[in-house]
Design a binder for these strands. Structure first.
Ligand code: ZN
Ligand code: ZN
Ligand code: ZN
Ligand code: ZN
Ligand code: ZN
Ligand code: ZN
Length: 440
DNA sequence: GAGTTTGAAACT
DNA sequence: CAGTTTCAAACTC
């Protein structure tokens, strides 16, 4: 795999992105509408593309991509409009200015000049416009470009930068997300069961239509009559409905019996029907922590399987737990989080730095900020991994080239189209970040 | 789908 | 309270 090292692409000069925040906002607004539709189309009804297919598809693109890179390089370098004697390229996390003749590469500091650092990162273009360019050139029906970018980020990033992938595949089944949402308690939804963390083999793709809330998982009780806490329906304070239980008494037909059972359970444990996951006092600012009230007592699962109620609820184990050899502590799951995203993104280091600076900031006028949480995923840069920056850049370059090929190439049009594309990319990043945080 | 493993709930 | 049994779900093959 030493050959994909390249990632070298050129950018026509500096690709603008100068002020005009109005345009940006407008673009963002517009994108919002379009993007939403795209998202629905993509997520709402799972596309027929299963993951294998997705991967294959991507590999295909990657391949084309490499070819394309060279084409682009030559075309741009050769006949390109009166470009300067250099172009920009990205390698890993760094932007280089490359002389067309000598080939000398000069690293560029992101902070030079007055421009925002983001500018340079965005400007630095790179490998193939999977989104637009490749499909076009290859005659592949121009698919929904909006979906493309993301896919490229998902699989592509992994393949290119070696380390564990950062991004989930877009079409990952979020199946069976949140369950247990006791309507009785206004405390809010209490996620309890999440079936899989990792993408499944896709043996049975497409099953639930809307995995989201509202669809409780049916019980399969045999001997409890669904009148003991063994039964999840009963434990959730719900009647059995569309369950597979035998001899179910957790229904209106057995209301008396049921009431008695509730009473009994309540005697045994007054908190029996309270949500097991309590919303702890908000730490920091807008971050509500959820913790298991009555800790788990795991002995063999290391709290790393759904046998563990803490793990199942995606909350860390606490001192309330009496688990043995727990691997679900706060730090454990934070490390996990890192691995998932990190993928050697230099930006992650900025994270730590930023956190430190912030915590030791001289501006201590804040009142109760004693225990401010780092929580990387709350920070924008957390999502600006190499892959993301790269993919975004690709999109911008692709957009630029497409626009360039247009008949009447107006400079203003160019700027607009690129900003527009940028807005779309941003929105996509946000959406996917949201999704990511939603399931993990 | 059958069989095993697991830990909460129930029971003593 | 601790130790044991029961139970349905999570998991494995
Ligand atoms: Zn039941
Ligand atoms: Zn039920
Ligand atoms: Zn039932
Ligand atoms: Zn546990
Ligand atoms: Zn625990
Ligand atoms: Zn634990």
């Amino acid at each position: 795999m030493g050959d994909h090292v390249v990632n070298e692409e050129l950018i026509e000069e500096e690709v603008i992105i100068e002020e005009q925040p109005e345009d940006v906002m407008a673009a963002l607004d517009q994108m919002e509408a379009e993007g939403a539709d795209a998202l629905l189309g993509e997520l709402g009804e799972d596309e027929d593309e299963d993951e294998d297919e997705l991967v294959r598809h991507h590999q295909q693109q990657q391949h084309h991509l490499q070819q394309q890179q060279q084409q682009v390089a030559s075309s741009s370098g050769g006949g390109g409009g009166g470009a300067a004697g250099h172009f920009y390229a990205i390698r890993g996390n760094q932007v280089f200015k490359i002389d067309r003749f000598s080939g000398a590469a000069t690293p560029i500091r992101a902070t030079t000049g007055s421009g925002a650092p983001l500018k340079l990162q965005v400007v630095g273009g790179d490998a193939g416009k999977q989104q637009v360019f490749v499909p076009q050139a290859q005659g592949i029906a121009a698919q929904d470009s909006k979906a493309q970018v993301f896919r490229s980020m998902g699989a592509g990033g992994a393949a290119q930068h070696g380390p564990p992938a950062g991004y989930r595949v877009v079409s990952q089944p979020i199946a069976s997300g949140l369950n247990r949402q006791p309507a009785a308690y206004a405390g809010g939804p209490v996620p309890t069961t999440v079936t899989f963390t990792a993408p499944k083999p896709a043996t049975k793709k497409r099953q639930q239509h809307h995995p989201m809330l509202g669809h409780r998982k049916p019980c399969n009780c045999n001997k409890s009559l669904c009148l003991k806490l063994y039964c999840e329906c009963f434990a959730n304070g719900e009647f059995c409905r569309d369950c597979n239980c035998k001899d179910c008494h957790n229904n209106l037909e057995h209301e008396n019996e049921r009431s008695k059972a509730i009473k009994t359970s309540l005697e045994r444990n007054p908190s029996a029907f309270k949500p097991k996951i309590d919303f702890m006092s908000a730490k920091g600012r807008s971050d509500v922590e959820r913790l298991h009230q009555k800790g788990c007592h795991c002995k063999k699962s290391n709290c790393l399987k759904n046998y563990c109620e803490c793990y199942e609820a995606k909350v860390p184990c606490t001192d309330r737990c009496k688990c043995c050899s727990c691997r679900n502590t706060e730090s454990d799951r934070q490390n996990k989080m890192r691995e998932k995203f990190n993928s050697a993104s230099g930006l992650l280091h900025l994270a730590a730095a930023a956190a430190d600076i912030r915590s030791s900031s001289p501006f201590s006028d804040d009142d109760s900020d004693v225990d401010e949480k780092p929580d990387p995923k709350a920070m924008p840069w957390f999502y600006m991994t190499d892959e993301v920056v790269e993919a975004t850049t690709l999109c911008l370059v692709a957009q630029a080239e497409e626009q360039e090929a247009a008949a009447n190439a107006d400079e203003l049009d160019m700027e607009r189209s690129i900003l527009r594309e940028f807005g779309r990319c941003l929105q996509q990043i946000i959406e996917n970040a949201a999704h990511m945080n939603q399931e993990q």
